[in-house]
Design a protein around this nucleic acid. Sequence first.
DNA 1: AACGATTAATTGGTGTCGCTTATGAATATA
DNA 2: TATATTCATAAGCGACACCAATTAATCGTT
Lengths: 300, 300
Amino acid sequence: MNIQIRHIRAFIAVADERSFARAAERLNVSQPALSQTIIQFEGTLGFPVFERTTRSVTLTQSGERLLARARTLNQDIDAFQGEARALQLALKNRLRVGYMIGTAVQFIPAIIREFERIRPGASLDLQEFDFSDPTAGLRDGKVDCGIIRPPVDLDDIEIVAIAREKCVVCLPTGHRLALQETVELDDILDEPIVAAPVPGVWRDYWLANDYRVNRPAKVVFEAATVESELQAVASGRGISITADSTAQYYARPGVVFRQIVDMRECVIAIGYRGQPNRLVADFISVVNRVSQGSHIQVGA
Amino acid sequence: MNIQIRHIRAFIAVADERSFARAAERLNVSQPALSQTIIQFEGTLGFPVFERTTRSVTLTQSGERLLARARTLNQDIDAFQGEARALQLALKNRLRVGYMIGTAVQFIPAIIREFERIRPGASLDLQEFDFSDPTAGLRDGKVDCGIIRPPVDLDDIEIVAIAREKCVVCLPTGHRLALQETVELDDILDEPIVAAPVPGVWRDYWLANDYRVNRPAKVVFEAATVESELQAVASGRGISITADSTAQYYARPGVVFRQIVDMRECVIAIGYRGQPNRLVADFISVVNRVSQGSHIQVGA
DNA sequence: AACGATTAATTGGTGTCGCTTATGAATATA
DNA sequence: TATATTCATAAGCGACACCAATTAATCGTT
């Protein structure tokens, strides 16, 4: 039988109140239960800590000595529980947001500013995810909500669309199609193409598999990041399909972007699991406000 | 569900070992039990303290913060248990000896010296008791053994006689019997007499009730201490019966002592409850050695 | 002296819980 | 692909913490 915190608390309570009945009330237990607890405590110690008659309860000399230690112990327990509560609160006021690399980059600074204005007490943890996890951390529960481009392979998340944008093809400079201002799917479906590293609906989406009939994608390279994707394209290994905003934010020598006129616009959305808590709900409304009716056009 | 010490210990063990299986071994519990304990702990806290895969266990950020507090808490728990053990040991090495006021006074200094020589680690708590408790604390368990003058009203104690001595009558100077060198019971049974304050066999013994036939004791005063007893006698209220050694150690102006020739010798004994532990046994042997064959004679 | 009031201990019964063994699921390693 | 390692889950069991009711002891009051 080992010492437990309830023993310590019972010991202190009885020592303070000098009465089992009052101490029991303070501890919200019955008096017999407290009697048992103290008896058990003394059994563990090997000596009595109280001298009790039916009329009085006093500490023994040993009990007096132990009481000092018990009090510091109790204080540390309180400190521990206080810290635990504080951490719990901090976590409750923390919003972990994942975002796919290159997704909503045009909104993120404004989102952060606005969210911090609305919820000054909360802390916003932004985490970037690469193409190896198109769910931006939702898959593994690493985030409370994720800024993603549907579709993804999760069926137990809610998805709120916040913007749409054109799809573009990324070509190496000097590619024959680079001479055109825009391209059509038919122009590119037979080109060797760069894909995301993990199989699934998201990879299929950006391989334009929806539009392929008997023209399977010739995947020549798998890239986890925009950088390696663009590098693969620039080196001439193949083309890749991506979103317009990526084209604008990651433009660099060696590659050019051309709008795919007959491909449906892609969606930027927020995904989250289960019922959105207050923080998630607030975040969604912030994002909606910032991106209001956003419909991105291919830039110059 | 409240935090318990076992949660703290489990938390620290897993954090140290970075493995549930190893930590479980260290804690002498099965691995599933430890898993449950940690899960419960996290449930109480409201957030996880470990990130675990089947291949690794790492602290979360919150867990890291809590760990510091847990360690100081653990140290205090150890300190508490250490103190408890120390007190237990101290009590185990402490011998509480009660003695009736005026009993074995001639032996006590030698007993203390000899006992401390035999058991240098032990501590000897000598407590004096007055006539209100002729069991010298044995009655209430206040002592481990008592130096008493049987008989007493306890039937669950062992009694070891260590010495015998004559009984004497205490008379006010100027009393008619003070002229004699010795007295007989017949001389004093009708005298008014001073008695112990509590009824019982011990009081009866010193009232010489064993020797009375149709000559009931005329108790005129009840005294709890030798001082008040002698004062009562000196003031002429009555006589009292006591032991020879008392006569020698408490002799004072106003009273004289005369041996009662036809009263059986009284006994000095050690009483103790149940099986004597090592300390009690040693104490008894010390007392026996010191008082060896002691048979006190009335002094000059 | 007797009674009521107060208080701690005891008793009996019940639901919870912490533990063990056995098994499952996931992931490195050969 | 098979094996080993590791944490989680399941089922069963014994212990125990609790409460309600009662008992025992003691004090104060009439």
